[in-house]
């Protein structure tokens, strides 16, 4: 059986502006997902999402972003683009850039294709969810 694509939604559902990932998660959790696509509520976590990445063929992260495009516009960022934003020591505030940066050296098994789908607040949740699903379902 081929490795699944995982949509990993991160963010804080209690904080408007950082709740895009959880809202996409809730929308997709109520839908029938295509075969081979799995959904993870990654919540507040960063490095602790490693085990959710391992074993996937593709990991599509969904998170609020800032500064990449006008608010609401859906952006797709590759692993290199996000990991380039990691700098300094890991801290409590370290997020996806640290995870993406370290992944090649700490991921057991084959490194999945990594992608971040995001949008700056306010964003259309359905539009972001559709893009994430399209990326995850891509052959």
């Amino acid at each position: 059986m081929s490795r699944p694509a995982r949509i990993i939604c991160v963010g804080n559902r209690l904080l408007p502006g950082d709740d895009l990932g959880p809202r996409v998660h809730d929308l997709l959790a109520g839908s029938a997902l295509p075969d081979g696509v799995e959904l993870v509520d990654g919540g507040l976590y960063g490095l602790d999402l490693l085990r959710s990445v391992e074993g996937a063929g593709r990991a599509v992260f969904v998170d609020a972003v800032a500064g990449f495009a006008p608010p609401g516009e859906v952006v797709a960022l590759g692993r290199d683009e996000v990991s380039a934003l990691a700098h300094g020591a890991w801290g409590h505030d370290a997020g996806l850039p640290h995870l993406f940066h370290l992944l090649p050296r700490v991921c057991d098994g084959e490194l999945p294709e990594i992608l971040l789908i995001g949008a700056e607040h306010p964003a259309d949740v359905a539009q972001v969810a559709a893009r994430a699903l399209a990326e995850a379902s891509r052959p």
Binding site: A66, A89, D93, L96, P97
Partner: peptide, 21 residues
């Protein structure tokens, strides 16, 4: 510190001394 808000943000502000390696 706040570890519960992790928006991926392009660029960063500089200008004041900060504690990092």
């Amino acid at each position: 510190l706040v570890c519960s808000v992790h928006t991926v943000r392009k660029g960063r502000t500089m200008g004041r001394a900060r504690l990092e390696a």
